[in-house]
Design a binder for these strands. Structure first.
Length: 114
DNA sequence: AACTTGACGGTCA
DNA sequence: ATGACCGCCAAGT
């Protein structure tokens, strides 16, 4: 199918596959889906994810700096940070410590290269 | 129907 | 190293 709005659904599929204690970036997901520059749309998908009947670990998705750019969307508090810390990571000033160490790249982990 | 904004990212100056 | 602009796609006004 691969319709334009399918991008959202694919984003959800990937995010739902992020293992606990791991994080990824909007750009990584976008790149995995084939649209490097559509990282912003990934963020929009996250916004819509909270309306889904399923649980989308959007707190495991941060920007390429490992910064909790969307923490404001988790109720206005640092729920996002607490969730990540609860999963074993360390957050400092809304920034994930050892971000690279916890980074989960769908292009690698899912290895979707036919 | 058109314009602006947005949970991003890379390149250029 | 820092700042500004462009590109991408969808949603809100």
């Amino acid at each position: 199918m691969a319709t334009n709005t399918d991008f959202f659904d694919r984003v959800f599929e990937v995010v739902k596959q992020i293992p606990t204690g791991r994080v990824t970036s909007y750009g990584a997901i976008a790149s995995y889906l084939g649209s490097r520059q559509s990282a912003r749309v990934v963020g929009w998908a996250m916004n819509a994810s909270h309306a889904l009947p399923e649980y989308i670990p959007a707190h495991r998705v941060v920007n390429r700096n490992g910064m909790l750019s969307g923490k404001n969307f988790f109720g206005g508090s640092n729920i996002m940070q607490e969730l990540l810390e609860s999963e074993g990571m360390v957050i400092e000033d809304d920034l994930i410590a050892n971000f690279k160490q916890h980074f989960w790249d769908p292009s690698i982990e899912l290895n979707n290269k036919d």
